[in-house]
């Protein structure tokens, strides 16, 4: 049973001036939200840890796909227009990472929907817990899992000979971009969870995520695609994230690539999490 801290420490102190009290109150509120978020994040991580069987396919499947593509596309990397790489493995690293974290990305929404279905969410609402941590706690769990997956996937790729031209810093950006993408997808899942209260509805977003990865530059450069598919791939935000990350891996460090790799998922994250907060506020004020 999760025990959430609820008592603001400042409230128990002696009398102060009005502005000092307001500032202290805001700071205490923020600290309290942080502590509650951490407590709910911990609960979420423990829940994932107890269901490792759900996490493993998200690691094994992208690695299997990368291994298969590396051995079947040896002639493909010689096509004119294909980026200069030693092996397809170097090319596919960002795709594998994005695919891996996407497997668990909807989990933040699914778990929230489960909490709504089994009544735990109502108990949290009845407690003096702040609203934002209810959402951020679940997202925090997804972030921790995504970070662990990211580090593991990169380590395995390095073990099999992948070289990251941008160095350790590029690897950090790669993981950060993947984590931001998880927040973006997780936020969307939470919107659906709040609106429908159904795990099934949240799970239905997985094919959408899966498709958006395949219909991007994840597994093939867009300049070698043609027709409507190329246009879709070029307009796909997943391509806007993968392309700069891939340049960091293949070509080396570039601040503009770092900016693009992080800004795109950050903007989408802010939008989806804001939508989740609005949906939650509406749900709570209507009930």
């Amino acid at each position: 049973m999760t025990c959430l801290p609820t008592q603001p420490a400042a409230a128990s102190r002696g009398p102060k001036s009005e502005s000092t009290t307001v500032n202290a109150g805001a700071a205490t509120g923020l600290r309290l939200a942080g502590v509650q978020t951490l407590a709910l994040t911990r609960r979420s991580v423990v829940s994932e840890w107890r269901q490792l069987g759900n996490v493993i396919p998200g690691i094994v499947f992208p690695l299997l796909l990368a291994a298969v593509y590396t051995h079947q596309f040896t002639r493909v990397i010689l096509l004119p227009g294909f980026p200069v790489v030693d092996s397809f493995l170097d090319f596919v690293l960002p795709a594998s990472l994005v695919q891996s974290v996407s497997f668990g990305a909807t989990e933040a929404g699914t778990e929230l929907a489960r909490d709504i279905e089994n009544g735990f969410f109502d108990r949290l609402r009845a407690s003096p817990c702040m609203r934002l941590p209810l959402l951020l706690g679940r997202l925090g769990g997804a972030v921790v899992v995504a970070t662990a997956k990211g580090v593991l996937i990169i380590a395995i790729f390095l073990l099999f000979g992948t070289k990251i031209a941008g160095g350790l810093a590029a690897a950090v950006v790669l993981v950060a971009a993947a984590v931001l993408l998880v927040i973006a997808i997780g936020g969307l899942g939470q919107v659906l969870a709040i609106l429908t209260g159904s795990q099934e509805a949240v799970n239905a977003t997985f094919p959408l995520v899966f498709t958006s990865i395949f219909m991007s530059s994840a597994f093939f450069p867009t300049n070698l695609m043609s027709g409507w598919f190329r246009e879709v791939a070029e307009a796909n935000p997943v391509t806007w994230i993968i392309d700069p990350v891939r340049r960091l891996i293949l070509e080396g460090w570039s601040w503009s690539d770092v900016g693009q790799a992080l800004a795109v998922p950050l903007v989408i994250s802010v939008v989806t999490v804001a939508m989740a907060v609005i949906a939650l506020n509406r749900k709570l004020s209507s009930s």
Binding site: R75, V76, L78, L79, P207, F210, T211, F214, M215, F219, F220, L224, M225, S226, G227, W228, F229, R230, V232, A233
Partner: peptide, 18 residues
Amino acid sequence: LIFVLSFTGAFGSLTRVE
């Protein structure tokens, strides 16, 4: 259907490999 569209769209250039 997603598979056929994705694979033909993304890997269409495979036909250019001898």
